[in-house]
C-alpha cells in the first residue's frame, strides 16, 4: 500500500492531465449521494421485512442439506471449469493454427455445443447414453459400472463439454490474437515449439482471454442448477426439496437466489484478483 502511494507521488508531476481522478480520497462521498443512501435503506428494510415476516423456521432442519448442496454446486463448478479449460486449450489451438483434419472437427464440436441447449445435451447424455450402456454386458461387468449408474458423472461430462465448447471459441480468438512478432522472436531465440507454447503463446493467450474467462465461469455457475434435473443433489435441488416439503413458495427461492449472488460475487472477485496479478499497461 505504502509503496503504491509513494509511486503515485512521484508520478503526479509528470501527468499532464489527471487520468485517475476517480481514485481520489473523496470517492466515498461521490459513491454515497443521498439518493443511494435512501435506496440502501429501502433494500435493508426489504431484507429486514423478509427476515421478520417470512417463515425461516425450516432453516435449522435443512441446514446440513443446504451446506451439502452448496458444496456439491461449488465442486461441480470448479471441476467442470478446470476440466473444460484443459479441453478448451487444444480445441482453441486446433482452430487457430491446426491442420484441417484437426481444425474442422474442433470447429464442428464448438458449433454443435454452442448451437444446442445445455439441457438437451445433459438429457441426451444421461437418458440417451445412460439407456444404451446397460445393453452391453461388458460395460455392466467393468469396474466403471458403479460410477456409470450414478448421475454425477453425466452431469460433470455434460458441463465440461459445454464449457469446453464455449471456451474453445474464446481460446481460438485469444491464440489468434497473440502478435505474430512474439512467436517469431521466440523462434529466433531457438526455442523448441513446446517451449514457445508454454512460455510465450499460452500465457499471452490466457491473459487476453481472462476477462472472458471470468464471464464464462459465472455463466457456468448459472448452468449448474440444470444438473438437478438429472437427480444430482445441488443447491438448487435442495431448494426444490424444501419447497416440496414445506409448501413455501418464496423463501427457499429467495435464499437460493442470494446463494447464487454470493457465489457470483466471489467468482468475480477471485478473477479480479488474478487479473491484478498480471502486469498490464493501460494506454
Amino acid at each position: 500500500m505504502s509503496n503504491a502511494l509513494g509511486e503515485s507521488e512521484i508520478e503526479v508531476p509528470i501527468e499532464t492531465f489527471p487520468i485517475h481522478k476517480e481514485k481520489d480520497a473523496s470517492s466515498l462521498a461521490s459513491k454515497l449521494p443521498p439518493h443511494r443512501i435512501v435506496l440502501i435503506l429501502i433494500g435493508l428494510a426489504l431484507v429486514a421485512s423478509a427476515a421478520l415476516f417470512m417463515r425461516w423456521d425450516w432453516l435449522p432442519q435443512y441446514g446440513g442439506l443446504i451446506l451439502q448442496g452448496l458444496w456439491r454446486t461449488i465442486w461441480i463448478l470448479v471441476v467442470t471449469v478446470v476440466l473444460g479449460f484443459l479441453l478448451a486449450v487444444p480445441l482453441g489451438l486446433a482452430q487457430a493454427s491446426g491442420p484441417a483434419f484437426l481444425a474442422i472437427p474442433a470447429r464442428a464440436f464448438c458449433t454443435v455445443i454452442r448451437g444446442t441447449p445445455l439441457l438437451v445435451q445433459l438429457w441426451l447424455l444421461y437418458y440417451g447414453l445412460g439407456s444404451l450402456f446397460p445393453q452391453y454386458p461388458w460395460i455392466r461387468g467393468s469396474e466403471l459400472w458403479p460410477y456409470l449408474r450414478q448421475a454425477w458423472p453425466y452431469a460433470v461430462l455434460a458441463l465440461t463439454l459445454s464449457y469446453a465448447g464455449y471456451e474453445g471459441e474464446v481460446m481460438r480468438g485469444a491464440f489468434a490474437g497473440v502478435p505474430k512478432g512474439q512467436l517469431e522472436s521466440a523462434r529466433a531465440f531457438g526455442m523448441p515449439r513446446f517451449t514457445i507454447f508454454r512460455r510465450i503463446w499460452l500465457p499471452q493467450a490466457i491473459h487476453r482471454a481472462l476477462p472472458t474467462l471470468a464471464g464464462e465461469a459465472v455463466l457456468q455457475l448459472k448452468s449448474t442448477p440444470l444438473v438437478a434435473t438429472i437427480t444430482v443433489v445441488d443447491l438448487y435441488s435442495v431448494a426444490s426439496r424444501v419447497r416440496q416439503d414445506t409448501f413455501l413458495t418464496y423463501e427457499p427461492l429467495l435464499l437460493l437466489a442470494v446463494g447464487y449472488l454470493v457465489i457470483t460475487g466471489i467468482i468475480v472477485m477471485l478473477f479480479r484478483r488474478v487479473e491484478r496479478l498480471i502486469p498490464s499497461k493501460l494506454g
Binding site: K222, Y236, T249, A257, Y260
Partner: peptide
C-alpha cells in the same frame, strides 16, 4: 438478473 441462474429466475417468476 445476470448473476442469478436463468433456471432460478424462471422458477421464481413463473411460480412466485
Amino acid at each position: 438478473v445476470r448473476a442469478i441462474p436463468e433456471l432460478v429466475m424462471i422458477i421464481l417468476l413463473y411460480y412466485a
